[in-house]
Amino acid sequence: MPADAARLRRALAEQISEKARTTDPAWLAAVEAVPREVFLGTDFYRPSGSTWEPVNRSRVGEDEWLRLAYSDTTWVTQVDGIDAGDATGPLAGRPTSSSTLPSLVVRTLEVAEIQNGHKVLEVGTGTGYSTAILCHRLGDANVTSIEYDPRLAETAADRLNSIGYSPTLVTGDGLQGYSEGGEYDAVVATCAVRHIPRPWLWQIRDGGSITTTLSGWMLASGLIRLTVDDSGTATGRFTGDTVSYMLARPHERPPRPVFHRLPGRARPSRVDPALLEEWTGHFVAQLAAPSAEFWISGDTDVVLADVATGSQAWTETDRDGWTVHQHGPLRLWDQVEEALVTWQRVGAPDQSAFGMTATDETQTVWLHDPDGPNWSLPA
């Protein structure tokens, strides 16, 4: 049977209603109405081993293309700034833009608690699909979307206009917000940030909200909705969802340093390095060492490396447990270990036990309540 786009959209909406725990039928109606294939254009990448393989619409055929478009999958559209349509073959590199899986788009908007009549600033237009979802629900006049990449912004505008949507579209640094459109009822970011940009706090009305994923150079991530009070202080709790978005480009990691086992101090570790491979353990480690990158390397368990200072830590497992080696002015494992021990001491709860407070001066993530254990963000 030939693929039918309307039928596939209905099936996707039904799938999302279960997967994203969606209770607001308006978002499901938007999924049924917005043609996602328009925003994929003619090319995207899919993972192929350690590379990204370009997929072309004409080569796979229209039926298969529609089935791919309406699968609840993130399709990468740009790798290291190279659009899929410009790739001559598989690429190795970091994804720099994508069409986010629709269930995550809907889940993020549901967490944001957006209602009819709300005025929303979307940070990260990307392909324009999530912008169209917002426009269908709120109307063009209530949607402002800002995109960092000029080429992506132009393409998204063309695609939105082609199906009748005309929100306010801005090309620029979304971390600066867009004051000409404020005050907003909500800021929703389709990219992750290392800290809450101060302009977002300034452009939200009293009682408005900021919904974003907080991430960092270890690429741990947590989805959070913050409410801004009349003093400009934003507070909220993480949802506990195991979801992530790409880091905003101004917050991206520096190039990963070349790892050499440099001489340093060795000692037994008090915690299992495998904790860094758990969702919340990874997040806690990032809070403790926000300027460090993390990866697995060869026969080591984990590697932490700080670009600014050259500090590093690496662990290895033997029959007696775990040994950590540390080099440089920062004792990275000491920082991470102390945070993990603190987290374990209160029962190692999931991410929903964490919250955040952001002001003009300071930003902290705390465990259980603002007076509990807390970690400062690199704001």
Rank of each mutant, 00 (worst) to 15 (best):
residue 1 M to A: 15
residue 1 M to I: 11
residue 2 P to H: 13
residue 3 A to E: 13
residue 5 A to K: 04
residue 5 A to Y: 05
residue 6 A to M: 00
residue 11 A to R: 13
residue 12 L to P: 11
residue 15 Q to S: 11
residue 19 K to I: 09
residue 24 D to R: 13
residue 26 A to R: 14
residue 27 W to M: 10
residue 33 A to L: 00
residue 34 V to S: 02
residue 42 T to H: 05
residue 43 D to S: 15
residue 47 P to T: 06
residue 49 G to N: 00
residue 52 W to R: 04
residue 54 P to M: 09
residue 61 G to Q: 10
residue 64 E to F: 14
residue 69 A to F: 05
residue 77 T to W: 05
residue 78 Q to K: 13
residue 79 V to S: 02
residue 80 D to Q: 12
residue 81 G to P: 01
residue 82 I to P: 03
residue 82 I to H: 09
residue 83 D to L: 14
residue 83 D to S: 12
residue 88 T to V: 09
residue 91 L to E: 01
residue 93 G to H: 05
residue 95 P to N: 12
residue 97 S to E: 07
residue 97 S to F: 04
residue 108 T to R: 08
residue 110 E to K: 04
residue 111 V to R: 08
residue 120 V to T: 10
residue 122 E to Y: 08
residue 123 V to I: 15
residue 135 C to Y: 04
residue 135 C to A: 13
residue 137 R to C: 12
residue 156 A to K: 01
residue 157 A to P: 00
residue 158 D to I: 10
residue 169 L to I: 11
residue 177 G to M: 06
residue 183 E to C: 07
residue 185 D to M: 03
residue 192 A to W: 14
residue 199 P to Y: 14
residue 205 R to K: 15
residue 212 T to A: 14
residue 221 S to D: 07
residue 221 S to A: 14
residue 222 G to N: 02
residue 223 L to G: 03
residue 230 D to G: 05
residue 235 T to S: 12
residue 250 P to L: 10
residue 256 R to L: 11
residue 257 P to V: 05
residue 260 H to C: 09
residue 260 H to V: 14
residue 265 R to M: 14
residue 267 R to A: 15
residue 267 R to I: 06
residue 268 P to E: 04
residue 273 P to T: 03
residue 277 E to Y: 06
residue 279 W to H: 15
residue 285 A to W: 07
residue 286 Q to A: 12
residue 299 D to F: 05
residue 299 D to M: 04
residue 299 D to E: 12
residue 303 V to W: 06
residue 305 A to T: 08
residue 306 D to Y: 02
residue 309 T to F: 03
residue 309 T to A: 03
residue 313 A to L: 01
residue 316 E to C: 02
residue 331 R to G: 10
residue 332 L to Q: 12
residue 338 E to R: 07
residue 345 R to K: 11
residue 347 G to P: 03
residue 352 S to T: 12
residue 360 D to K: 09
residue 361 E to V: 07
residue 366 W to T: 00
